[in-house]
């Protein structure tokens, strides 16, 4: 299995949120009840049902030009995942040879949600009823089938693409040079060297984007209140610790899914 990553080019993205819905559909996540709080953004945060969502923010450039900035939130599939380092149960979180960081829920569920605290961005989330962690798994079932992630395949403009890790950054930089022609302040996020298998192209500096970090949602899901303060955005990747790399046996569920896919896509 080659290693994969996702490239999310926010300059192409028009926030149609096909990715957000297709993630729920493919991964059989339920909708949650939301209200409009004065933004198109919804849900407001990740949860065990919501593994990705589009963040919306508005930025008025010094010249008066207004830009609506979109950024898709999801697990970054770190090379050295903080979640994994914090996890007390061996192999409950693994970094798969395909590049995806995966929670093995057969083993997970017996700690105090350490991965949430271990992850610099608080990505893993829990149902209110137990301590099993849920998050984006980079559609491992699809990638092993040689298909792009659900969010990539749903994207009408190829703003999200599933790429081999070996070309991920090179492709990102090639795209960046084009994006910069229209958006001089465009940048790659996280900056090179941070060891993330998910890479964004942002049209403006990260400070104008929404990187707000959860403080309440975990407690609202029934966890203990977040005890730790959260680090600044720049410092977070530094936390990531050395990871184990391990394979994971495909669960029966995925085999079933594969059959369905093969049947549907053979048509």
């Amino acid at each position: 299995m080659v290693e994969y990553g996702l490239l999310i080019d926010q300059s192409l993205c028009m926030a149609c949120r096909g990715c957000q819905v297709s993630c729920k559909q493919w991964n059989e996540r339920q909708a949650i009840v939301t209200t409009n709080v004065g933004t198109y953004q919804n849900p407001q945060d990740l949860s065990w049902q919501t593994w990705t969502f589009m963040r919306f923010s508005e930025y008025e450039e010094p010249g008066g030009k207004v830009r609506w900035l979109f950024r898709r939130e999801l697990c970054r599939h770190c090379e050295n995942p903080g979640c994994l380092a914090a996890c007390p149960v061996p192999n409950a979180i693994v970094r798969d040879q395909g590049g995806m960081v995966i929670v093995n829920r057969n083993l997970c569920g017996d700690c105090n949600r350490e991965c949430f605290y271990g992850c610099p961005w608080g990505v893993p989330r829990f149902p209110g009823t137990n301590n099993e962690a849920w998050k984006c798994w980079m559609c491992r079932d699809r990638l092993y089938e040689g298909k792009p992630s659900a969010c990539s395949s749903a994207c009408p403009v190829q703003a999200t693409r599933t790429l081999e890790k070996s070309v991920l950054l090179a492709t990102a930089y090639e795209r960046l040079s084009i994006v910069k022609q229209k958006h001089p302040r465009a940048n790659i996020y996280p900056p090179t060297g941070y060891g993330s298998n998910v890479v964004w192209i942002l049209v403006d500096s990260p400070e104008h984007y929404d990187f707000s970090f959860p403080t309440t949602s975990v407690s609202s899901e029934g966890a203990k209140p977040a005890a730790k303060g959260f680090l600044s955005e720049a410092a977070r990747p530094m936390l990531a610790a050395t990871a184990l790399t391990a394979g994971i046996a495909a669960a029966a569920k995925f085999l079933d899914r594969r059959e369905k896919v093969a049947r549907a896509e053979a048509k």
Partner: peptide, 12 residues
């Protein structure tokens, strides 16, 4: 459709 309602739940 719940997934779409989640995205735009209310009149604005």
């Amino acid at each position: 459709l719940p997934w779409l309602v989640e995205l735009q739940p209310e009149m604005f």
